[in-house]
Computed example of a mutant assay.
Amino acid sequence: MSSPTPANVRPAEEDDLAAVAAIYAHHVRHSTASFEAEPPDIVEIARRRASSVQGGHPYFVAEQAGVVVGYAYSGPYRPRAAYRNTVETSIYLHPDAMGRGLGTLLLEALIRACERHGFRQMIAVVGDSTNRASIRLHERQGFRRVGTLEAVGFKHGRWLDVVLLQRNLGEGASSVPGAQGA
């Protein structure tokens, strides 16, 4: 058996957004990773990407053989000013690309980029407590479970939990943001 084609993780571009929208639409329709009921169109996906990038947040795609097979981005955890040093992550893979280490590549790139941007905390809000692959992916990258919100969503005929995971970035809470760290 031949080895898989190497993956390239890079910043997302406008031309990638149709693939991003298709990947996300699959998860909206067929999984509980997203709590959206209807997939957003490409115009909304472009708006979301622009908002993320304009806010100083990274937005990446993973591609293999020139095909976008996954994406990841960060955004503000919450809109209030006190949360400005904390980001929330999102990672989605094409269903045929799962289990090949692409989520790890995307999450590692996202962590590095968020640290370079000076963010201090990263939160993963994992839809559905049975989404073990996503929970394990985050735990392998140093996230720790900080809570479970039970039965806060209802999709595909069942109640869904949300698992919250958190990871320090850079100096974390050991210094004041913007101060010269030791």
Rank of each mutant, 00 (worst) to 15 (best):
P6L: 11
G181I: 01
A22E: 14
D15A: 15
L149C: 13
L106I: 06
Y83S: 03
D128S: 09
P58F: 02
G66M: 11
L169M: 09
L93R: 03
R145Y: 01
L169R: 04
A25C: 12
R84N: 11
A21E: 12
L149K: 02
V176N: 00
R140Q: 14
W159P: 05
F154T: 11
D128P: 09
V152A: 00
A151N: 12
G153Y: 02
R144C: 06
V176C: 04
G66L: 09
D16R: 02
A46T: 15
S31Q: 09
V53M: 00
H138A: 04
H26F: 13
A151F: 06
I135W: 06
T89F: 01
V126D: 01
A50C: 04
L107E: 12
A21L: 04
G178I: 12
P177L: 00
S3F: 11
V28C: 02
V67Q: 15
L107T: 01
P177N: 01
V68T: 09
P58E: 05
R10W: 07
A151Y: 00
Q64Y: 03
P11E: 01
H156W: 09
A72C: 08
T148K: 01
I123R: 03
A151L: 03
E44T: 15
I123V: 14
N168C: 08
W159H: 13
H156T: 10
V68N: 04
L165F: 02
N168F: 10
